[in-house]
């Protein structure tokens, strides 16, 4: 079965039809095709590896349950993105996990992620190897409001256009622009010490 999956190109339209017929092979193909994308979005919003894995599984199981209701007014990818975003935001709304979220951000010794500017920026790979850098990024993202972070993640991680983001999130194009603007403005404030130091 895996050999077939690797070798054959199946377009989303055919994949949907097969899924609606309850084709197990199609389901496996869909999981393989979208698993990393879904994980990335979930992680970008939740910043939690374990929860993102759970969300990814929930998304696929929801698709499996409800594929019969899929009318095809959006692409399969858009539909998956939409479910992922909703599930990720719902995750944040759960009080216990929200507590953990807040707990992480306040318990961290580095409350101001960009408060210690680097005079010279090493390569991103080297910086990413540094746990402190990862914490700085996570904390900067946590400082963004949920909706602004979601739009920012869809734009920066998935490279979606404004129109696609509007489709996924169900908001107007102008609101997408506005949220993206506010996300970057807020990030600019957070990164301001770094900017002032001179890159």
């Amino acid at each position: 079965m895996s050999k077939t999956i690797q070798n054959r190109i199946v377009h989303d339209e055919e994949l949907i039809l097969r899924l609606q017929r309850g084709d197990e092979w199609a389901f496996q193909l869909m999981v393989r095709r979208f698993r990393k994308k879904i994980f990335s979005i979930a992680f970008g919003i939740t910043l939690d590896t374990e929860e993102s894995q759970d969300i990814m599984q929930e998304v696929f199981l929801q698709v499996y349950r409800t594929i019969g209701d899929f009318r095809g007014d959006a692409s399969l990818a858009t539909w998956l993105h939409r479910i992922t975003v909703n599930r990720s935001l719902n995750w944040k709304r759960r009080w216990a996990r929200r507590f953990r979220w807040l707990h992480v951000s306040t318990d961290n010794t580095d409350e101001h992620p960009a408060a210690e500017p680097e005079s010279e920026l090493p390569s991103p790979e080297i910086r990413m190897a540094n746990a402190q850098t990862r914490h700085q990024i996570d904390n900067a993202m946590r400082m963004l409001p949920d909706q602004a972070r979601t739009v920012f993640v869809l734009r920066e991680l998935e490279g979606l256009s404004y129109e696609e983001i509007a489709d996924v999130t169900g908001i107007k194009l102008g609101t997408v622009r506005s949220r993206l603007f506010h996300a970057r403005k807020r990030l600019k404030e957070i990164l301001q010490p770094l900017v002032e130091e001179g890159i």
């Binding site: 496996q28 993102s52 696929f60 850098t133 990862r134 993202m141 991680l157």
Partner: peptide, 30 residues
């Protein structure tokens, strides 16, 4: 600064993705 942050975020997510066993997850989902 904003471009560097976006690049760092992508690497951060890439780093997190690398730590996940997607094959095992796929089996669980199936």
């Amino acid at each position: 600064a904003l471009r560097a942050f976006s690049q760092d975020l992508r690497l951060r997510v890439h780093h997190a993705t690398d730590s996940v066993d997607f094959v095992a997850l796929e089996k669980q989902v199936l």
